[in-house]
Design a protein around this nucleic acid. Structure first.
Lengths: 261, 261
DNA sequence: CGTACCTTTGATAGAGTTCAAGAACGGTGG
DNA sequence: CCACCGTTCTTGAACTCTATCAAAGGTACG
């Protein structure tokens, strides 16, 4: 559900996470089965489900969720499984993917800490994606019933609407951008999202493979690899395997606007 | 927000409108400024906002909306305009499009009678698309405040979630399909949606130009035109300008699964 | 420490875009 | 009712981008 957002030159592509101001603490992994209280959660500032309007402070006390661990490579839920909860990522990293009958599949989103997933199941009572952890992760399980409180409704609408807007951003990306623009937009999005969570916006570790990036961006893994190399040659970024350093953010952003160099 | 859905060979691409069973009446255009009552609306069976669960029958009586006419080429709302209502299409045809700063734009959805639009504005209080009528049209204006009734909440969630799923279908389409598959999926989607509304599923009139189709599908207008010609040569369909007749629906659907002929 | 996976890089080919020009259509006004 | 104009559609030819095939390094994990 998370998208590549091109921040600067691409006006209409919005970015959910960037609205939250910095929250520099990282989620610590505590013991597994303990419940979590939103009002003491150290992701409060970026966690969308808990990023409730000020009015509902009292309500936060009641929001206690169970946590669930998902190890790298494990599935949080499968397409077709029944829907009864949403999930907020407490720590780690996930991908959502949709599988076609003929075997093709596509990564539709990447999710990092503080982001909400599972909304694809709201409509039909069963999920339509697979969600898989790309590293050892932990989520808060939010039973759908909890979200029926009137005070939470508007917030939920906002989260869902933002997701719609984000998906439109991905549609733009897939529909109108060339390969290098797509990858640049993807990097800018990651950069902003890491930045919003208190991590470095200029240097980070990719949790996904070239293949998964390619699937998300509608490109082959070889093209992704080649583009990383080319961008490095051109001095925008530095790449060593999964370590990315963005050397010239403005130029990276600019490369989204008008195609290749 | 409406997408090209590939029905058969592409499992995960869902199709909101097809769930409604046939509703063979067409919307008649009455006088302009009269309010509309949902429980007498002849789109009841397909109109999503009004397609409420049986439980809420009494509620339907209260749902009275004002109508608004939008002539061909006119804009229902612009990107950036403030959000306060959703719109249900009573008659006519719309496109949603998103514009990038550099001038590129993309059609993100087509909307026909009975479909709901405007949800892109829920998150940020202002819309992120332009919505333009492709023929003289009429919408029901649904003030957001009306939707805060608890009985309507779940329904609204479902509509939004279905839209998320549909957007994922478009992402699949743009991310993994080749040109001919995309166009086939698009035609199948239109066919099903017309069918669900009581019109012929095998023969219909395109309301949009080749350019708009191409924009939606991530293709150039020339490619769209060429593909129409090729499909006609191969006997799937018959095309004369905007009149489409699908001669072999199974074969059309099959051509989505495995690429070109 | 070995094996499986991931990444890089090259060569080739194919799909789709772009540029261009002519044809068909639809609406308008005389 | 017909002629005209602008828009839309079709089709061709050349080119570009990206996928595909292939093979060699690297890394990480068990």
């Amino acid at each position: 559900m998370i998208a590549a957002q091109a921040a600067s030159p691409l006006k209409p592509i919005h970015f959910a996470a960037s609205r939250a101001s910095v929250a520099p603490r990282r989620a610590t992994s505590e013991s597994a089965s303990l419940p979590t209280r939103c009002n003491t959660c150290n992701l409060r500032e970026v966690c969308l489900p808990c990023g409730l309007p000020v009015a509902s402070e009292g309500l936060l006390d009641d929001l206690v969720y169970t946590r669930k661990r998902v190890k790298r490579g494990e599935t949080l839920y499968h397409a077709g499984s029944s829907f009864d909860s949403l999930y907020a990522v407490r720590s780690g990293f996930f991908k959502s993917a949709t599988l076609l009958e003929d075997g093709r599949d596509q990564v539709t989103a990447f999710h990092m800490a503080g982001e909400l997933l599972g909304m694809d199941g709201l409509g039909t009572d069963h999920h339509t994606n697979d969600v898989v952890a790309l590293e050892d992760s932990e989520v808060c399980v939010i039973p759908y019933a909890h979200l029926e409180a009137p005070a939470l409704q508007k917030q939920l609408h906002k989260v869902m609407s933002r997701e719609l807007v984000r998906d439109h951003g991905v549609m733009m990306l897939l529909g109108t951008m060339r390969a290098e623009e797509r990858l640049a937009a993807f990097l800018v999005s990651l950069s902003q999202r890491f930045g919003a969570r208190g991590y470095s916006a200029a240097e980070f570790h990719l949790r996904m493979t070239r293949d998964e990036i390619g699937s998300f961006l509608g490109l082959s893994l070889e093209t992704v690899s080649r583009l990383f190399s080319r961008m490095q040659d051109e001095g925008f970024i530095s790449v060593q395997q999964k370590h990315i350093r963005i050397l010239d953010i403005p130029r990276l952003k600019a490369s989204i606007g008008r195609a290749a160099s």
